Amino acid sequence: MRDIYIVGAGGHGKVVLDIINKSEQYQAASFLDDDSSLHNETINALKVLGGFKEVLNDDKAVIIAVGNNKIREKLFKIMKSNDLEIINAVHPDAVINSFVSMGEGIVIAAGAVINPNAFIEDNVIINTGVTVDHDCLIEKHVHLSPGVNLGGNVTVQRGAHIGIGAAVLPGINIGKNSVVGAGAVVTKDVPDDVTVVGVPAKIHKS
């Protein structure tokens, strides 16, 4: 099995470690995290070796385990610019149709279901129990939180974050960098760079 680094030793890192531990392709060599207070600590039986730049001096593959979209995007771009191999981490209990297309650096957690002709771009998190129905497009650096349900033909644009338990009706477009609050039901298109909450979801004005 191929050794890999898990970049990010927080809560999402623990989830990714569990996925890797169940993998037949990879084994985790160590966590990397820029929080120096974690260096040389052991988290769920895996050591935190040092900061993420450690990977630049090694030939191991990596998976980014950071929930924050902007930080994850920054790390992804650095690693791509250094020609690192960025793997997908897919839990064996996820159900992915054979006609799904996927990029790289994707995390798919336990219980996720991705239906035919969905397209998942690079560096996306599809968290525990998410359903992505047919013909959806999930663009780069998106995070779908646990329990999100997307109807068919939904587009989630680059950098958007959909909160726990939210539902998006078929054919809806979620704008880039927008946030859908936990438990929201999205019944119409969401513009770029806004937060929507509630049932039905409406733009939240702070």
Rank of each mutant, 00 (worst) to 15 (best):
A182Q: 08
D193E: 07
I108Y: 01
P92H: 09
D189L: 06
S178D: 01
T42K: 13
I164T: 08
G8D: 03
T195L: 04
N69V: 00
V55W: 01
V124K: 04
K47I: 10
V185T: 07
S145F: 07
S30C: 04
K22N: 15
V100A: 13
V179Y: 02
E139H: 15
V107I: 14
V90F: 12
I125H: 10
V185S: 06
V62L: 08
T42S: 14
D83C: 11
E54A: 09
A160I: 00
N149T: 10
A89W: 07
A29N: 04
L32D: 01
K74Q: 04
A45S: 14
H91M: 00
I43D: 08
K53E: 03
D59K: 05
A61C: 01
P92E: 06
D193K: 08
A45Q: 13
A118E: 01
G105L: 11
V130F: 07
A182K: 03
V142Q: 12
N115D: 07
V7M: 08
V48T: 05
E104V: 14
H39F: 06
D58M: 02
S36V: 12
N44I: 14
G10M: 03
I174A: 07
V148I: 09
E73A: 13
K77V: 10
D33L: 00
K188H: 14
S98Q: 15
D33H: 02
I6T: 08
N115H: 10
V130R: 03
N68D: 05
T128L: 02
I172D: 01
V154Y: 11
V124T: 00
A61G: 04
D18S: 14
I203H: 11
D59N: 09
G10T: 01
I203G: 12
S206G: 11
P170Y: 14
I172E: 06
A65Q: 05
A109E: 09
E73W: 08
K80W: 05
V107D: 13
D189W: 06
R158N: 02
L144M: 13
G198N: 08
C136P: 15
D122F: 02
L32W: 07
S81V: 03
A89K: 09
E139Y: 15
E24F: 13
V55T: 08
D34P: 01
G159H: 03
A65C: 06
P116S: 11
D83W: 08
E24N: 15
V16F: 07
V197T: 02
K202L: 09
I87E: 07
L49M: 04
G50T: 03
V168I: 10
L38A: 11
F119I: 13
P200R: 07
A65R: 03
H141M: 03
L38P: 14
S98P: 13
A45Y: 14
N173T: 09
I106M: 13
V168W: 14
A109T: 10
T128V: 04
A94N: 03
H143P: 12
F31H: 04
L49I: 01
V130D: 04
L84W: 08
A9C: 00
I126S: 00
G67Q: 00
I138A: 13
N153R: 09
G111P: 10
M102N: 13
K70N: 04
N69G: 01
